[in-house]
Measured scan of single mutants.
Amino acid sequence: TYTFKVDNKDQAKKAAKWAKKLGLSFQIEKHGDTFKITVQ
């Protein structure tokens, strides 16, 4: 499981695209202005 934080929606979208490309499941949680992405 890999967790990282991004500062904006664009970065969150890029991370989601990357995870989908690799066939991984992911969750994006919004914490105020940051997004926490968990990829597994």
Rank of each mutant, 00 (worst) to 15 (best):
Q11M: 10
Q11S: 08
K17S: 11
H31T: 14
F4T: 02
V39A: 02
D7A: 13
D10A: 15
K36A: 11
I37E: 00
K36V: 15
V6M: 05
W18K: 05
H31A: 12
L22C: 15
T38S: 06
A16R: 12
V6T: 08
G23D: 03
W18I: 06
K30N: 06
S25F: 11
A12G: 03
N8Y: 04
F35D: 00
K21V: 06
T3H: 09
K30T: 07
K36M: 15
A15Q: 02
L22I: 06
F35Q: 01
K14W: 10
F26M: 08
D10F: 14
Q40F: 15
T34V: 14
H31S: 11
K13T: 08
Q27A: 10
F4I: 06
K20L: 09
K5Y: 15
K9F: 14
Q40H: 14
F26Y: 10
V39F: 07
K17T: 08
K36P: 00
T34Q: 14
T34R: 11
I28F: 04
D7Q: 13
K13W: 10
I37W: 01
K14P: 00
K14Y: 08
D33I: 06
A16L: 10
T1D: 06
T38A: 04
Y2G: 02
D7H: 13
Y2K: 05
I37F: 08
D33K: 10
A16E: 10
D10S: 14
W18N: 03
N8W: 02
D10E: 14
T1H: 10
N8G: 11
Q11V: 08
V6K: 01
I28A: 04
W18F: 05
G23Y: 03
K17Y: 09
L22Y: 10
T3Q: 06
I37N: 00
T3A: 05
I37G: 00
K13A: 10
T38W: 05
F4C: 15
D33P: 08
F4E: 01
L24S: 02
D7R: 11
Y2N: 03
A16P: 00
A15L: 14
G23V: 02
G23A: 03
D7T: 12
K5D: 11
K30P: 08
I28R: 02
G23K: 06
A15I: 15
T38I: 10
K14M: 09
A15D: 00
K14N: 07
Q27C: 11
Q40K: 11
F4A: 02
S25D: 09
Q40C: 08
T3G: 03
K30Y: 07
H31D: 15
K14G: 04
T1P: 09
Q27E: 09
A12M: 08
D7S: 14
A12K: 03
F35E: 00
S25A: 11
K9H: 09
K13C: 11
D10T: 14
T3K: 04
K9M: 14
A15E: 02
K20S: 09
K20N: 08
E29S: 09
V6I: 06
K20Q: 12
I37K: 00
G23E: 03
T3E: 09
A15C: 12
A12N: 01
T34I: 14
K17W: 10
A12Y: 04
T34P: 01
H31V: 15
E29Q: 09
Q27H: 13
D10Q: 14
I28T: 02
T34M: 13
F35W: 14
Q27W: 13
E29Y: 06
L22T: 05
G32T: 02
I28G: 01
K20G: 05
T3D: 04
K20M: 11
D10P: 06
D33M: 07
T34G: 15
F35S: 01
W18V: 04
K13P: 01
K21L: 08
K21H: 08
Y2S: 03
Q27M: 12
N8T: 14
K5Q: 15
F35T: 02
K20V: 07
E29D: 06
D7N: 13
K13Y: 09
I28D: 00
K36I: 15
H31G: 03
Q11C: 14
K17V: 09
I28E: 02
A12V: 11
T38E: 03
Y2L: 10
E29R: 07
A16S: 07
F4L: 04
A12P: 01
L22P: 00
D33E: 11
K5I: 15
A12L: 12
G32L: 05
Q40E: 10
G23L: 03
K13I: 12
T1Q: 10
K36Q: 14
D33G: 09
F4N: 01
K5S: 15
K30D: 06
A19W: 03
V6G: 02
E29C: 14
F26R: 00
D10M: 13
F4W: 11
D10N: 13
T3M: 07
K30E: 07
G32D: 08
T34H: 15
A16M: 11
T1F: 11
S25M: 09
E29M: 07
T3C: 14
L22N: 13
Q11W: 05
D33W: 05
L22D: 01
N8V: 02
L22F: 07
L24Q: 02
F35M: 04
K30R: 12
Q27F: 13
K21W: 08
A19L: 15
D7C: 11
T34F: 14
T1K: 12
K20I: 11
K17P: 00
T1W: 12
A19H: 02
T1N: 08
F4K: 02
K17L: 12
K17R: 13
K9E: 12
K13N: 09
L24R: 02
E29V: 11
H31K: 08
T38M: 05
